[in-house]
Design a protein around this nucleic acid. Structure first.
Length: 466
RNA sequence: GGCGAGUUGGCGGAGUGGUUACGCAGCGGACUGCAAAUCCGUGUACACCGGUUCAAAUCCGGUACUCGCCUCCA
């Protein structure tokens, strides 16, 4: 089976032909760690996690490298730290506040991703750990005439690179003509971008040939991919908003530093997200964090399934209605695979859908078809291949929970036998409110815990008279 | 101003020339003391106008509307 993906660089769907089948390399731009991950951050994490799983299936677990960076040098982080320090009375050093924020946000990110069953990448480098590599690449760009020093900054010269703009399909002259921002006076060309900038004493900075400073944003990905992958690798992913300028600049830096390389052969970009039909933006106050959802009791798998319900390249409208529908679907799938042990491979129809430019709606549709068949093992294995956990709640096995429910059910069975249906219904309603679903059969009743099961409500219900 | 994406049935959402996508909701039925869950059945579609073709949701041209990027952003 061959894997086909849409390559943003060429604008066509292409068969993936790894440079080295025993070392398939995927690079994805990770988070800037200054705040809780929102669902817009979650989308690429989930989408490329699924790609990672697919690649591992195709080429073998040990033959896929996935690097996803942590951006822990950024002016947004510095600003956040300064604001926190201001609020807390300026006791702590700014650099220490920064380290605290980036460490804590990184932990949050890991927790949130784990809740959605996102696998850890094989490598997760932090920008602060790759400064020497960045400095070395900038030096090389200066030597080759693609970068220049000006006013304490080092800038990349877009005019030195004829293909600048080709990745994102932009024309430099046109962009300058339509630019709405003022040009920094030390730039030779308005589109030149910063590789290195000076840091004042209170800001994070590292010694360099150009004085104490910090790297521009784009260079870290170039340096990291070089460090772990070499000059060329297979797939580079990220949100479509990163295509320009971030990925354009990354590609320009890397290709100028290594003119004989290909850098990323294939570029994959996920579409952006709307919330209830509107752009998600902090300024609009409608951004939804993964933590918000989890705290509300939304299952991480439901979030994941909702993100996968739309093809990754399409814009996704995040709505409560969609979330509820996907929650119900996942519950149905869990019910369907209760007691099933999945050991085999995922069903070929699901894998084929994913091999077709990661067509998750098609894969979900295939799962509906498999669900109707007898092979529950293949069904469960296929759902779990999408990274959706189907395991039942461990609480359902707790003896105290079982005992209370079965005592109540016994009373209900007796009421039904006496044909006192009002009483039987009252007991059923009490259980329902506590999150216990009842299923009557001719020879007794079954129960299971719903997602909203609440132990305290159950205890209270059992203590009341009915 | 420049660049790009989208417009599919009540809702969600696939589909790059010819067969019912699929799901949710709705409706009808089975099952049930009544439910829940489950199962069976079922209607509604391709923004608009032209063109190409034996055949177009799918290709080409145009129109309208929506949205995004060009500034930090996944």
């Amino acid at each position: 089976m061959e894997l086909q993906f849409y390559n943003t660089r060429t604008g066509t769907r292409e068969v993936l032909t790894p440079i080295d089948k025993t070392n398939v390399r995927l690079y994805v731009c990770g988070p800037t760690v200054y705040d809780r991950a929102h669902i817009g951050n979650a989308r690429p994490a989930v989408v490329f996690d699924l790609l990672f799983r697919l690649l591992r299936l195709q080429y073998g677990v040990d033959h896929v490298q996935y690097v996803r960076n942590i951006t822990d040098i950024d002016d947004k982080i510095n600003a956040r730290a300064a604001a926190m320090r201001q609020r807390d009375g300026q006791q702590e050093e700014l650099l220490s506040v920064i380290r605290r924020i980036t460490d804590e946000t990184t932990r949050w990110y890991h927790d949130d991703m784990a809740a959605m069953n996102v696998l850890s990448p094989t490598t997760e480098p932090r920008a602060t750990e790759c400064i020497p590599e960045m400095v070395s690449m900038i030096e090389s760009l200066i030597i080759k005439g693609h970068a220049y020093e000006a006013d304490g900054h080092v800038l990349f010269s877009v005019e030195s690179y004829a293909n600048y703009g080709s990745l994102a399909g932009r024309n430099v002259e046109e962009m300058i003509a339509g630019a709405r921002v003022e040009q920094a006076p030390f730039k030779r060309n308005a589109m030149d971008f910063v590789l290195w900038k000076p840091s004042s004493e209170d800001l994070p900075g590292w010694e360099s040939p150009w004085g104490r400073g910090r790297p521009g944003w784009h260079i870290e990905c170039s340096a990291m991919s070089l460090k772990w992958f070499g000059e060329s690798f297979d797939i580079h992913g990220g949100g479509i908003d990163l295509a320009f300028p971030h990925h354009e600049n990354e590609a320009a830096q890397s290709l100028c530093a290594h003119p004989n390389s290909e850098f990323a052969k294939m570029w994959m970009h996920n579409g952006l997200l709307l919330v209830e039909g509107k752009k998600m933006a902090k300024s609009l106050g409608n951004f939804v964090t993964v933590k918000d959802l989890i705290d509300r009791g939304v299952d991480g798998g439901t979030i994941r399934l909702t993100l996968l319900s739309t093809h990754y390249r399409q814009p996704l409208d995040w709505t409560e209605r969609k979330l509820a529908e996907m929650g119900a679907l996942l519950r149905r799938w869990r019910r369907l695979s209760e007691g099933v042990t999945a050991t085999g491979p995922p069903h070929s129809s699901v894998v084929e859908a994913l091999a077709d430019d990661l067509n998750t709606p098609k894969a979900i549709s295939a799962l509906h078809a498999i669900a109707k068949e007898e092979d529950k093992m293949a069904f469960k294995a296929s759902v779990e291949f999408l990274g959706l956990s189907l395991s039942s709640k461990p609480i359902a096995n707790r003896e105290d929970v079982k005992k209370i429910i079965e005592t109540m059910l016994f009373a209900r069975v007796q009421a039904r036998q006496r044909r006192e249906f009002d009483e039987a219904d009252a007991i059923r309603e009490k259980l329902r409110v506590a999150g216990v679903e009842i299923k009557d059969h001719s020879n007794g009743s079954e129960w299971r815990l719903a997602d909203d099961f609440n132990f305290n409500t159950l205890v209270r219900a059992s203590e009341e008279k009915w």
